Computed example of a mutant assay.
Amino acid sequence: ESYGKGWIVPFHPEDTQSASEAWNQALATGEVYRVEGRLRAADGSYRWFLMRGAPLRDEAGKIVKWFGTCTDIDDIKRAESEIRKLNRELEERVEQRTAQLRESEQNVRRKLNSILSPEGDLQNLELADVLEEEGVQSLLDDYYSVARIPLGVIDIKGRVLAGVGWEEVCTKFHRVHPQTCQNCLESDSVLSAGAAAGEFKVYKCKNNLWDVATPIVLGGKHLGNLFTGQFLFEGEPFDIELFRAQAQRYGFDESSYLAALDKVARVSKENVNASMSFLAKLAQVLSLSAYGTIKLARALEETRRVNAELASSNRELEAFTYSVSHDLRAPLRHISGFSKLLSEEFGSTLPEEAQHHIKRIEEGTRRMGMLVDDLLNLARVGRKGIH
C-alpha cells in the first residue's frame, strides 16, 4: 500500500498537502526530506511522527535511493499542545487581571478625587471609603456591653462593615446557607430602603425576623444603614410551623434551628422606638463624622497644594535673586574699579565738580553692593525651606 504514491495514504487529511510538498521539494533539490505529520494506525487513531529522508547517490552523483526514518513524537506534540493551551489560559488570566487592576486603579483615583478635590463628586464614594471601621466597631462594642442590643453597620450593597451581638439564628443559620444569606442581603439592601436621614424603618426580613434600619447619608447620598433587629415583637403570635417549614426548606436541623429561635429577643414596640431614636442620632453622628473626615482630608490636600506652590515660587525667587545679584556684581565692580582708578591717578588734577561726581559714583556703587548682598541673603533664606 505504501509503494509508489501509496506512501501518502496513512497521512491525516490535514497533513497530506504539506507532506507531499516537502517530498516534491526534496526530489527537485536533492536536499534532506523532513516533515512532521499525523499517521493513521491500524485501529484508526492518529499519532504524530517526524519523518526524515536522505538521498543515496552513485559515483556520478545521481540519486539512486532514499533512506528514511519515522520517529514517534506524539507525546512531545501533546505536551507542546498542552503548554500552548496553558500559555493561552495564562495570557487570558493576565489580561483579565490587568483589566481588573486598571479598573481598580481608576476607581481608586475617582474616589481619591472625590475625597480630596473641593469639587469632588461624593456620589463616587462607598461607605467603607469614609468610615473608620475599627473605630466604629469599638463604638458598637461599647454600646452593646451596656444596652445588649444587636447592632450592625451595613452598606447599601449588603456588605457588613461592623457588627456586634447578632443572634445565633442569624450567625449559624441565616447567614450561612446560600439562599437564606441571599435573603439577608436583599433585606439589608432593598427592604431597608426608604427611610430619610434621622428617621428609621421597621421591616420584617425575608427570613421572617424583624429588623430596624436608619440611614447613613453623606452629601445627600445614602451610603448604608445602622441596623438593629433579629428580634420578634412581644405579643406577636409565634408561627412555629412557618419556621419549621423554613428549616425543612433549607435543610436546617429542626431542633437546633428552633432552639436558636427560642433565644431570639422578644421586645416591645415602645422599646424599639426608644432605642431607635438614639440610634438614628448615632447614625447622623456617623454621617457627620464621615463628612468631617472628608473636609479634613480636603483641607490637608489644599494645604499640601498651597505649600507646594509656595515652595515652587520660593525656588523661582531664589534662582532670580542669584541671577540678578550675579548680573549686577560684574558691572558694579567695573564702575567701582574705574572710578577708584580715576580718583587715584587724576583726582588732584580734576576740577572740584568732577571730584564731587566721582565720590557720588563711589558712594552709589557701595550702596548698590549692599543691595546685592541683601538679595543674596534673601535667596539664602529661601533655601531653608518651608515648614
Rank of each mutant, 00 (worst) to 15 (best):
K221H: 14
Y257A: 09
A247S: 13
V212E: 01
F238W: 11
A274Q: 12
E254S: 07
V264D: 12
D262E: 15
R266L: 13
A259I: 04
S275W: 05
A213E: 01
Y250S: 03
A259H: 01
E254C: 03
I240M: 09
V217S: 03
E234A: 12
I240Q: 14
G220C: 02
V272W: 01
K263F: 07
G220I: 10
G224W: 04
F227H: 11
V267I: 15
Q246Y: 10
P237Y: 08
I240P: 00
A280Y: 02
A260Q: 06
N273A: 15
L261M: 15
Q248W: 01
S275P: 00
M276I: 08
G219S: 06
P215I: 05
F227E: 05
L209F: 15
S255K: 10
M276D: 02
D239T: 07
G224F: 02
L242Y: 01
S277I: 05
V264T: 12
D239C: 08
A260G: 08
I240W: 14
I240F: 03
G220W: 12
T228M: 13
D211F: 13
L232N: 10
H222Y: 10
G235H: 06
N273V: 14
L258T: 05
P237G: 10
E241T: 14
L282R: 03
A245D: 15
L218Y: 02
H222E: 15
Q246H: 11
V267R: 06
D253R: 07
L226A: 05
V272E: 06
V267E: 13
A265T: 12
A265W: 01
V264R: 05
D253G: 09
I216H: 00
N207F: 11
D211K: 12
Q248S: 15
T228S: 13
R244I: 14
V212A: 07
S256E: 15
K206A: 04
Y250F: 15
A274L: 13
G224R: 04
H222P: 01
F252W: 07
E234Y: 01
A260V: 06
S268F: 03
